[in-house]
């Protein structure tokens, strides 16, 4: 049985010009110990679908699905209190902006211990010890000292490591990483990806990697889902996706990589999408301003 199973997920936002469908009938399943990458450009609904799983969308969003289960439990039927028991414990998420996702008013140690207190009910001493161990695990030097640092005293890469420590505090079954390295330098990106992959293998977690970077996909994923405009364009294991992409959109994405450039010009989406597809790709018509 898959760990997380979603069928026909639809997320709509109420806007002034009627409902806007951000996710349109996406189905996916993740098994234990699997690394799934969800790729897409901005507006493809890749983050929104995972926020729906975590229950983190604002009230303006309408979430519906034929099925949305985690470890066999129906996520749509959960009360907020029941959901809080799961998220942060069995299912955790890390975000793109590490600086923005930590609270600047509290020490790093406090923020890690908060999770341990809430979900595991450990006493003060045990919490301190576990927080120390977690910082060591994510490769922060001198963890004892660092526990009393504030986020602004750390670099972006270190903050992301702290976020990973918070997410891993309760040994989750599933970790969702939403563009975990987009804000970081290439060398730091490599360290964070290596860290995530090592922890994934050691702890046997399932990992969902949300990204727009084909390089990150190639370096991490077992299986890949390509999303575009809220729809799933393709699902394949990583090797066949790169070797033999089925959908036009995937082919367009791969050939837009500068390293795959063959001639003087880079092919663009327009060269690949048939007209009907390209028509939907054009942004909603822009109003002329009153002159």
């Amino acid at each position: 049985m898959p760990l997380l199973e979603i069928e026909n997920l639809v997320v709509e936002f109420q806007t002034a010009s009627g409902p806007f469908r951000a996710v349109d009938g996406v189905s996916l399943a993740v098994s234990e110990r699997e690394v799934l990458a969800i790729v897409g450009e901005s507006g493809s609904g890749k983050s929104v679908s995972m926020l729906a799983v975590m229950g983190l969308l604002p009230w303006t969003a309408k979430v519906s699905a034929d099925k949305m289960t985690f470890q066999g439990r129906d996520l749509l039927a959960l009360s907020p209190a029941q959901r809080r028991e799961i998220i942060g414990k069995d299912m955790a998420m890390i975000f793109q902006e590490p600086m923005a996702s930590l609270n600047p008013c509290f020490t790093v140690g406090f923020q890690i211990e908060e999770v341990l207190k809430e979900h595991l009910g450990l006493d003060r001493k045990a919490r301190r010890a576990r927080a120390n161990e977690l910082l060591r695990l994510v490769g922060i030097p001198d963890p004892e000292q660092r526990l009393s640092s504030y986020p602004h005293q750390m670099s972006g890469g270190q903050c992301q490591r702290v976020m990973i420590a918070v997410a891993l505090a309760c040994n989750p079954k599933l970790l969702i990483a939403d563009e975990p390295t987009t804000a970081l330098d290439v060398t730091i990106q490599k360290q964070i990806l290596d860290l995530l992959m090592r922890l994934q293998a050691e702890h046997g977690m399932a990992l969902i990697m949300i990204t727009h970077n084909m390089g990150v996909v190639a370096e991490t994923a077992d299986r890949v889902i390509v999303q575009y405009k809220g729809r799933k364009m393709e699902e394949a294991d990583v090797l066949s996706l790169f070797e033999n992409p089925k959908s036009n959109y995937t082919r367009a994405l791969l050939s837009a990589l500068p390293e795959n450039a063959t001639g003087d010009r880079l092919p663009t989406i327009g060269d690949f999408m048939i007209e009907a597809e390209a028509a939907t790709a054009v942004k909603t018509p822009i109003m002329e301003p009153p002159v």
Binding site: T187, A218, V238, L239, L257
Partner: peptide, 25 residues
């Protein structure tokens, strides 16, 4: 050299190599 080594590779050979390493681990 560090910079080059850190840049993710998206070619099929690198993916094959990575999957092989992963299976071996």
């Amino acid at each position: 050299k560090t910079l080059f080594a850190a840049t993710p590779r998206a070619d099929v050979e690198s993916i094959r190599a990575r999957l092989a390493r992963r299976r071996a681990a």
